[in-house]
Nucleic acid binder design. Sequence first.
RNA 1: UGGCCUAUGGUGUAACUGGCAACACGUUGGUUUUUGGUACCAAAGAGUCUAGGUUCGAGCCCUAGUGGGCCAACCA
Length: 662
Amino acid sequence: MSEEKKSRNFIEQIIEADLANGMSKNDLRFRFPPEPNGYLHIGHTKAIGISFGLGEYYNAPVNLRFDDTNPAKEEQEYVDAIKQDIAWLGYKWDKVLYSSDYFQILYDWAIMLIKEGKAYVDSQSSEAMAEQKGTPTEPGVDGPYRNRSIEENLDLFDRMKNGEFDEGEHILRAKIDMQHVNMLMRDPIMYRVLKKEHHRTGNNWCIYPMYDWTHGESDYIEQISHSLCSLEFKPHRELYDWFLDQVVDPNKLRPKQREFARLNLSYTIMSKRKLLKLVEDGIVNGWDDPRMPTISGLRRRGYTPTALRKFVETVGVAKRDNVIDVSLLEFCIREDLNKIAPRVMAVLNPVKLVITNYPDDKVEWLDAENNQEDESAGFRKIPFSKALYIEKEDFKEEASNKFFRLKLGGEVRLKNAYIIKAESVVKDSNGEVTEIHCTYSEDTDRKVKGTLHWVSIAHAIKAEVREYDRLFMDEAPDSHQDKDFMAFLNPKSLNTLQAFVEPSLKEAKIGERYQFQRLGYFNVDDVSTSNALVFNKTVGLRDTWAKQKPKQNQQAKPQNNQPKRKAIDVIKQLGKKYTNLPEAKQQKVRAEILELAKNVSYDEVEPLFNTAAKKVGTRIAVTLILQVLLKQGLDKNQAITEFVSKAIEDKNELLKLEANKL
RNA sequence: UGGCCUAUGGUGUAACUGGCAACACGUUGGUUUUUGGUACCAAAGAGUCUAGGUUCGAGCCCUAGUGGGCCAACCA
């Protein structure tokens, strides 16, 4: 495998190191372990991309494991949705597994731990146990049941399992160390009594294992080589390893947990709990509302698997907290859609345009290219007639010559059709333009500045178009400790329009994606029917005109015509690297510094006399500046003399050399 | 009065493991264009949180500090 030298992220480097240390490639195995308590969101896409991506790269199996140890929150609906989302993204899992598959062996191992004196039944209230647990800065203390006999523990645990106790009466905990610096190691709970029906095991069990006891052991059972999760699980790693120590057969593979930073997207939230609240409060219309950052929401919005995969690949993998700008996501979807989406014409905010010199009853069916990015896409026919709709925004009675669209007396091209000239307008009693009267010319070869999209009124189809804006007004809505994320909701995140689309869209099918020319990318929504078309706006086109517009009104921004950097700063920068450069370049830089030094004052250099001894480069630069300044007639004061004499005694030859010139 | 993680242009990620800080997005110009799209070209923008240290040489190693994050659910 001689790929191009792509830089590898730290997880890939760990795997490469393991392989180099003798791990067989055949032992590589990964897993994606969602809890089926909600829908997957774009943050999960990163986790999915990492584990499944590794699987694809190394041709290693990846299990889809549902971490279903809490029957109170989990449902089959979520299992199905999660499978659908991963499959839609185009990833293939090896096996679908469930933590609940391992309830029996986990139970057997728990008995073993009790017998070894490494687990015990605690019978206190959760409050009492919390109290004994201490805090991050204070150690915990042992509880009264910590030294129960093995026989008693066995008996109690058996009766817990048999349903003899109510929830909260007893729990099983590992016996580790109540004084441990890591709070997770202070006798963590392994089992609790939960008299709830489980979506898969029904009522077979009334004790359920906790996450920590389950996760590592499940990885071990499945022989997962690298168990990758997000950073907040880092403190769990110690416990993960402790539990593994209790059961691992040294002849079998021992899983490794490694953690990466989760994905955050600006202007949205990434917490299942909070997303659930948006759904439950009716802020959005379900988990797949096109404004939701869920995979199903993005799918319904018109995003493609290609774009999402490209996105998480571009975002990279590291260990520092991050907030990724939505503009990157938008770039990814535009990039994909630009290549694959057929172009069509639709008018969202119509104004009537009449071509006065076009015959009343004439209709021409003109050829229109489907996608200039894709030659195989071919052409379609679109009807042209005397009365058209164009966008209100595309006409102004008067405008500067930076306005490339239609204005009175001005000419513009109608896409796929003729060049027209605006002659007059008809207005209503409010002064609103209701009709624009134009003349057309059949000479289409001329160059005109603007091109407008349009539809023929007689042939256009009405369609509902839903435009979406960000759900939150704040860049990081859930990062404020004093304000609830709900306070940042954008009241105008949904805008519904009655639009007119060209007749070729009559047969548009649910999910199909189009570019409405000059407007953006749209797809056919799930609720759309051939009688009542509904489109979602996936994302707008890049719009450099929209960016300019506000500038015209606002007083010219204080353009960041940043002053040229001060000479001294440039010198400092050059100096820093000085000793590091090859000789030829050093000469060049030296000359540069000497030149720049002419614009430096003594007051600017003086503070640099204190530069740390180690920063030889900077001190050389200072020496060079002094050479220039002295030549310009600066008097040698005491500070200079001191600096120079120190420099002459320095062990760095270059510095000595320059200093001696003074 | 703790432990762990982390710190590189506006954002995200790199830097062949110590040798002239790169790529993508974004931004700004320009060329092309029957989409103010796309494509192409170019530019600006960080000297790597601070202070020391090791080294001929540090973004990378060491020490201390500072900032940010995580850790006290019978959640995962």
